[in-house]
Simulated assay, not measured.
Amino acid sequence: MSIQFSYYRNIHASHMILTPALEGEPWEKEMLWRNRPRELILPEYNSRNGQTQLWYDITGKQAVDMLAELSDISYEIFIKICEAVVAMAEVLDGLLISPDILLLRPESIFFDNQTENVSFCCYFGNEKEIGKSFHELLEYLLAKLDHKNVNGVQTAYELFEYTRMDGYCIAEIKKILRKAEYTENVPEKITETVWKEEESEYMSIPVENKKKGILRLWQQKEQNIFGRIRKLLQGGKIPEKKVEPFVFEPEPEINMHQQNPTVLLADLPKKEYGILKYEGNGTCSELSIDHTPYIIGSELDCDGVIPSGTVSRHHARITRKGEVYFIEDLNSSNGTMVGGELLNCRVKMSLQAQETVMFADEKFRFI
């Protein structure tokens, strides 16, 4: 079954729209709508052009696949997603509802921009059981995972391998996650650098093993010394290291004209980039779009930082194709407007010269 995704935004909210709209058992819907589990996004059923659609309110949330486009998935986010899946599965089991209704796709799992809580979409009639869906999600996350955390990568692969098993238990994943949490909380062994003479290199050994390491090195050195003495007593000769003769070879003369060729200023490539000139009342500065993709937001890791409480951490993204710049809203909390038009999430709009761009209530002009 192919699920179609589309997006719509107005002044009040941002929605993800899914079709086809499948309905579950009446008692399931009644149970969910009465209890409304936290971090489970329940859809509204709307009819458009004779077709029923599922509308999910995703205002102020960013999908996992969007986060993965901005940067590698950190181990902390990876664990948070896994723990949230297990927790939501347990909540649904407590309501006697199959956790298969969770749509575990990167584009339908969301992080709240304010609380950083993980949210899932409820989709009745999901053809995949949660075990397979979770395995496919892990496969996606592994490809996007930041591999700098060795323990984290090991845990991720352990989870992935475990979910290969037929009929594995979601609850069993909690044990792997607990073990991972324990491993992360154990302080790393302090190491000292020791000169290893035999191999002419430095080696790092744990401090608690320092005495053993030094003793081992001295034992090896003693064996080498006694071996030399034995060989001398037996009338043998110790081979001397061969010293390669040094041969002086004059460097070829360099033509100074070739070494520093004259470059005409007209031949230098012109630096071309777009500019967002600030026209608001705050303390923001001009943004020079000297590369793409160019992320704009209030977070310090953005390419263009707008220090405003109304601007989301990762608010919008600018890309370029040929000479044309495009802008898209990253499902920010307060929206992005171009030429007075509010952008839908994930929809790219071209930027025209002298066009106004509003990031929440901060006004810029593209030049």
Rank of each mutant, 00 (worst) to 15 (best):
T155M: 12
T155F: 05
A156M: 05
L159S: 02
F160D: 05
F160A: 11
F160L: 08
E161W: 04
Y162C: 01
Y162P: 03
R164H: 08
R164C: 06
M165I: 06
M165D: 09
M165G: 04
D166R: 11
I170G: 07
A171W: 06
A171I: 08
E172H: 13
E172C: 08
I173E: 04
K174N: 15
K174L: 09
I176F: 14
R178Y: 14
Y182H: 10
E184N: 12
N185Q: 14
N185Y: 08
N185E: 13
V186L: 14
V186R: 13
V186M: 14
P187T: 04
I190E: 14
T191D: 01
T193A: 09
T193H: 04
V194R: 04
K196G: 01
E198L: 05
E199A: 07
S200G: 03
Y202L: 11
I205A: 06
P206N: 06
V207G: 02
V207T: 12
V207M: 11
E208A: 07
E208Q: 09
K211V: 10
K212H: 07
K212N: 12
K212M: 08
K212R: 09
G213P: 05
L215H: 09
L217I: 11
Q219H: 07
Q220F: 03
Q220I: 06
Q220M: 08
E222D: 10
E222Y: 13
E222N: 09
Q223A: 15
Q223H: 08
I225K: 09
I225R: 10
I229M: 13
R230S: 12
R230H: 11
K231F: 02
L233V: 13
L233G: 00
Q234D: 15
Q234Y: 07
G235R: 04
G236H: 10
G236V: 06
G236S: 10
I238K: 03
I238C: 06
V243L: 12
E244W: 06
P245N: 04
P245D: 11
P245S: 03
V247M: 09
F248P: 04
F248H: 12
E251L: 14
P252S: 10
I254C: 05
M256H: 12
Q259H: 13
N260K: 12
T262A: 10
T262E: 13
T262L: 12
V263I: 15
L264F: 10
A266V: 07
D267P: 00
L268A: 01
L268C: 08
P269S: 02
P269N: 02
P269V: 00
K270W: 00
E272D: 07
Y273F: 15
G274E: 02
I275E: 11
I275R: 12
I275N: 01
L276Q: 02
L276K: 03
Y278I: 01
Y278N: 03
E279I: 12
E279F: 04
E279N: 08
G280V: 03
G280I: 01
G280R: 03
G280L: 06
N281D: 11
S285D: 14
S285I: 07
E286G: 01
S288Q: 15
D290N: 15
D290E: 15
D290P: 00
H291A: 06
P293H: 10
Y294D: 08
I295K: 07
I295L: 15
I296Q: 02
G297F: 01
G297W: 05
G297I: 02
S298M: 05
S298V: 01
S298P: 02
